[in-house]
Amino acid sequence: MKGMSLIVKTVTNIVIGFILIYGVYIVLHGHLTPGGGFAGGVIIAGTFVLKFLAFGGTARSERESLTIGSVFESLGALLFISVAILGILLTGVFFANFLAKGIPFHLVSAGIIPICNIAIAIKVGAGLFSIILALAAMKYVIED
């Protein structure tokens, strides 16, 4: 799809890093403050969508992005399910919190919850980015 005007591109260049950092912050602090993997993942997906809408892309780059997005979505799902199965292997309970609890209100605490947040963020972000790419940016069906 085509890009947008110079104003949109300049503003995008300025704000996109801040939005990405905010998304990562929401994910990593999911067990301490409101937010978590789902919200942070959607914000991270939003930065990629913003870049695509502002700068556009060729049909080839869109197809490659869709492939990368689906790979990352599967990786996130695999990470989430492997944390759950590790719980079975180590303690005998599905989704058992097998890591140390740590001190509450510290960044490294709450056992597997931060890892699950990161897995969900990768999965949700890549999945929603793929959906938007397929629905809004691609021209597969219409032009073929």
Partner: peptide, 22 residues
């Protein structure tokens, strides 16, 4: 006390009810 997470919502959706999140 049981999960160590300060955000109770994260505790519920990723520890007590993680199967629902799956």
């Amino acid at each position: 006390g049981q999960t160590g997470g300060a955000n109770i919502v994260a505790d519920v959706i990723l520890d007590f009810r993680a199967l629902d999140t799956l």
